[in-house]
Amino acid sequence: MKASPGATSPVRSSPAPQRAGIQSVEVGFALLEVLSTSPGPLMLRDLAAAAGMSAAKAHRYLVSFQRLDLVTQDSGTTRYNLGPASLKLGLAALSRLDSVKLARQLMPTLMAQTGQTLALAVWGNQGPTLVHWEESPQAVTVNLRLGDVMPLLSSATGLCFAAFSLPRLAAGARPQSRLALLVKDELVRNQKLARKDVPASMAEVAALLEEVRLRGMARAVNTLLPGVAGLCAPVFDADGHLVLGMVALGSLATFDTAWDGAVARPLAAAARQLSRDLGFKQE
């Protein structure tokens, strides 16, 4: 049947053309993705299997990734891990988050109010990770760097993330989430070291995290570094999720560790203000 002159023929929609890419890059990225979600370094066979490729194929990609510093290999264990270039990329991305940008704008005022070293931390692949650091003129020298992952049970930063990201822990409950497993692993390590300054049982962990929730911030004194105290206040987004920890750190000689002291008050106020700016509504 012929269409009559002037009649409009139906137009068939065609799928949007797929943009050309480099398939080998996409394939190789699977290895980086596995390493980013792994709790630690991996053997070649395990890494390759998790990425869905043969060990020989994975090895070729890993050789190139090592040249670019995206991946490192431990000469002793032969295990692979993410390299310094991966950390650099991750920190650059994290530092451009809106929450971090907004928090950095509050830092000069907070520094003037507290006189202490300040830091910002977000949740990374391995735990709470420092993504910004501003030293006070009276700063105590500490062996911390951008990209460092804070321990969950001996640092104010770790306690803050554990308390406000985990559901309340029952003493006999088995950990389910990755964060809960990390807490359990750290607890076991501390038990082996016979540390007396951190929780020694899951019941003590649960009690400590409950205190952090009640106080609205976390505190660590002499547990992360000798002679050093820290406070960390949580920042929440519009959905009530913890997105950032605002940290104050200093020498016990000058740092007010009181829950309502000269450091805690402005730190908590800044965190509440940033949470409001991100759309969080306090119940």
Rank of each mutant, 00 (worst) to 15 (best):
I22S: 09
S24D: 08
E26V: 15
V27Q: 11
V27Y: 04
V27D: 13
F29V: 15
A30E: 14
L32K: 15
E33W: 14
V34F: 10
V34Y: 00
L35E: 01
T37Y: 15
T37F: 14
S38C: 08
G40P: 04
R45M: 02
A48L: 05
A49W: 09
A50V: 10
M53V: 10
S54P: 09
A56G: 13
A56E: 02
R60F: 08
R60H: 10
L62K: 04
L62V: 13
V63R: 03
S64C: 10
F65C: 10
Q66M: 15
R67W: 06
R67Q: 15
D69A: 14
D69E: 13
Q73E: 09
T78P: 11
R79Y: 07
N81I: 08
K88Q: 08
G90L: 15
L91Y: 01
L91M: 11
A93T: 14
S95Q: 15
S95T: 05
R96S: 02
R96I: 08
D98S: 13
K101M: 07
K101E: 05
K101Q: 12
L102R: 15
A103K: 11
Q105A: 08
Q105G: 10
L106H: 11
M107V: 13
T109C: 07
L110A: 10
A112F: 03
Q113T: 04
Q113I: 11
T114L: 03
G115N: 01
G115W: 03
G115D: 11
Q116F: 00
Q116G: 00
L118D: 05
L120F: 03
A121C: 01
W123H: 12
N125Q: 15
N125M: 12
Q126F: 07
G127N: 00
V131F: 02
H132A: 14
H132I: 04
E135A: 01
E135H: 06
S136A: 08
P137I: 06
P137N: 01
Q138D: 15
A139W: 02
A139Q: 09
V140M: 08
V142G: 02
V142M: 01
V142P: 01
